[in-house]
Amino acid sequence: MQGVVKVNSALNMRSGPGSNYGVIGTLRNNDKVEIIKEVDGWYEIRFNGKVGSASKSYITIVN
Rank of each mutant, 00 (worst) to 15 (best):
M1A: 10
Q2L: 14
Q2C: 15
Q2Y: 15
Q2S: 11
Q2R: 12
Q2P: 09
G3C: 09
G3N: 02
V4P: 02
V4I: 14
V5C: 06
V5F: 00
K6H: 13
K6W: 03
K6P: 01
V7G: 10
V7A: 12
V7L: 06
V7P: 02
N8H: 12
N8D: 14
N8F: 06
S9G: 15
S9C: 15
A10T: 14
A10N: 12
A10M: 13
A10E: 14
M13E: 04
M13D: 03
M13W: 07
M13N: 02
M13T: 03
R14M: 13
R14E: 03
R14D: 03
R14F: 14
S15E: 11
S15G: 08
S15R: 06
S15T: 09
G16Y: 03
G16E: 02
P17T: 04
P17A: 06
P17F: 05
P17V: 04
P17K: 03
P17S: 05
P17G: 04
G18K: 02
G18S: 05
G18D: 06
G18T: 00
G18I: 00
S19N: 14
S19G: 11
S19E: 15
S19I: 15
S19A: 14
Y21R: 04
Y21I: 04
Y21D: 05
Y21Q: 04
Y21T: 05
G22A: 14
V23F: 04
V23T: 08
V23M: 04
V23L: 05
I24L: 07
I24K: 01
G25Y: 04
G25L: 05
T26L: 13
T26F: 09
L27E: 01
L27D: 01
R28A: 11
R28H: 14
N29P: 11
N29G: 07
N29K: 09
N30T: 05
N30L: 10
N30F: 08
D31K: 01
D31P: 01
D31R: 01
K32N: 09
K32L: 15
K32Q: 12
K32E: 11
V33Q: 00
V33E: 01
I35S: 00
I35A: 00
I35T: 01
I36D: 02
I36H: 03
I36P: 01
K37V: 06
K37C: 13
K37D: 11
E38M: 07
E38S: 07
E38D: 07
V39G: 06
V39Q: 10
V39H: 11
V39M: 10
D40A: 08
G41R: 04
W42A: 01
W42Y: 10
Y43F: 10
Y43Q: 00
Y43V: 04
Y43M: 04
E44G: 02
E44T: 11
I45W: 00
I45G: 00
I45Y: 00
I45A: 01
F47L: 06
F47V: 10
F47T: 04
F47D: 01
N48H: 10
G49R: 04
G49M: 05
K50W: 08
K50S: 09
K50H: 09
V51M: 09
V51E: 09
G52Y: 04
G52L: 02
S53D: 04
S53W: 15
S53I: 10
A54L: 10
A54F: 04
A54T: 07
A54Q: 02
A54D: 02
S55L: 15
S55R: 15
S55F: 11
S55T: 09
S55G: 10
S55Y: 12
K56Q: 06
K56V: 10
S57Y: 14
S57V: 12
Y58I: 07
I59E: 03
I61R: 06
I61G: 03
I61A: 07
V62Q: 09
V62F: 08
V62T: 11
N63H: 13
N63T: 13
N63G: 13
N63S: 13
N63K: 12
